[in-house]
Design a protein around this nucleic acid. Sequence first.
DNA 1: TTGTAAGCGTTATCAT
DNA 2: ATGATAACGCTTACAA
Lengths: 339, 339
Amino acid sequence: MSTSGRPRRATIRDVALEAGVSRGTVSRVLNGEPYVSAQARAAIEAAVAKVGYVPNTAARNLALQRAQAIGFIVHEPHELFLEDPNIGAILLGANRVVSGADHQMVSLVIDSERDSRRVARYLSGGFVDGAVVVSARQNDSLFGAIGRLSIPATLVGRPPADVSVPWVGIDNRGAAAAITGHLVSTGRRRIGMIAVALDRDSGADRLAGFREALGDRFDERLVVARPLYEYTAGRTAMEELLERDPEVDGVFAASDAVAAGALDALRAHGRRVPEDVGVVGFDDSSWARRTHPQLTTVHQPARLLGERAAESVLAQLRGESPEPVGTLLETHVVLRGSA
Amino acid sequence: MSTSGRPRRATIRDVALEAGVSRGTVSRVLNGEPYVSAQARAAIEAAVAKVGYVPNTAARNLALQRAQAIGFIVHEPHELFLEDPNIGAILLGANRVVSGADHQMVSLVIDSERDSRRVARYLSGGFVDGAVVVSARQNDSLFGAIGRLSIPATLVGRPPADVSVPWVGIDNRGAAAAITGHLVSTGRRRIGMIAVALDRDSGADRLAGFREALGDRFDERLVVARPLYEYTAGRTAMEELLERDPEVDGVFAASDAVAAGALDALRAHGRRVPEDVGVVGFDDSSWARRTHPQLTTVHQPARLLGERAAESVLAQLRGESPEPVGTLLETHVVLRGSA
DNA sequence: TTGTAAGCGTTATCAT
DNA sequence: ATGATAACGCTTACAA
């Protein structure tokens, strides 16, 4: 009388038994190696089907010392991971090249200290061979983990000065200066900014570009800051801006989602856009075409950023370019109705 | 003269050597087990730090026969995975309970036959202990894989009749009937529908509910179908509807994103909402509050769906409730300005 | 062409 | 309280 638990999953051993060959031969067939008799191959294939064999990847990874998987790590509140079309496009691009290389991309979202530890643990296994890291904070504990594991990683966005790791990004500062310049050149005199995520390179650099473009005209009372790139942040920040100075006639919002919020706040206060105040955004995300009027904004090649980052990780995996190096991708201003 | 490759990662063995104890003791300390001398513990902790030990999860999973990870599988074009706020909310909910149970959630997106195979392979490893499956098609090859692996899985949405697997969902048909009823009861006479994703239970059921609510008044010329829940689908479908019958005074769009598109198409054709035509959506997603006017729609507890699905998988992992069973969550109509 | 056996890094049982 | 040692399922020399 045997107590039967949940049916054990078939292993190579079972296949070998069934086919009347050794495990080594089974493994060879499974991996499409040459030097196996047609006879053995047929028997093994039949046996695989019969016992319902599926390979155990954990064991395989352990033996092979690799996982055929790349992590896509986002350090961002979950809400934003979903709302932010930029991250989405980056993910899309990365996934395209990762699957093209026949690796599996696994997305991991970090939203707390606990998450951070769990992800570090996850990375430490043979679970992923490398990682694309998005929207890390300037002082992210993740950097420590990645360094310790010495696992190939590439950042999207510029890393803090003291960590050296390959990265791809855009010239946030230059782009911000360019679009602010558009506001200036179209005659706006009292220009404010809704600055966001100043704890990240993107946020800080966009503010720097704004300041640079305005020169003497820069008035720090006209910049209001928010922690996250969100629609509602745009609404409330715009309210605050109008309170501080009802005469503002130009606004640079640090992202399109934020600009959309600003637009609605302006409408609520009876301001016409672009007649009374010109508004510009950043990203050229799907938000930009859904506002009324549509947004003048900075086009950022988000998808391409993802592709490049993934390619960089794969290259590192192949042992190429060991030294960290940053790549800047081009941006450009796209003119629509809002300014 | 030794050729030195990339530095090998430290193992338990290295720690044991360094600390002058056996591997067994190290393992015990690492797993916080009792019955270890303070002395040994201290020595081991020092050694761990010194050699920079990080555990190998693949080996651990192999030995333990579990991965502490749950897959979140979305069968959807990547673009939509990002745009669809519903999926986002489901993911959020699932992730909340998965991380709460100290498991890692890994998201896998299927967008091609090749992806499908790769994901099946991935699942087959010791990589995930179970899976939450979202937006599967009625004849999804994934079902085969999951059945073969006999890995605990729970669907979000009703599975096809011939597969028996636990699921959570909403009464799409009843909800669609209810919101269509609102259109009827507010005096709309020529009511059309923009039906979407008829190859999935949600899409088909919403159409069924619409038909049911209209009874004799149902006119199949007034329903135009689209494959995916997208904003642009709403725009073009609304155009088509206006062409087919310029007199339509009510529209049920199968999702809020689609309704938003319809709204913009109506505006472009000089129709006022809700004066000339009433529009209702489905989901009560973030879209619903960003349109002008805001949408009257069906509230669907997306986040809760994700939580329940994840809980169900965890329960199965604990060996509970072996037999498949479906759960329906409540929805309700929320009235805003669009109808 | 095929079988044998030694790893891969953990955990867990059983002595001690 | 701790040390051996046998799994876990797979790959891969090396022998035959």
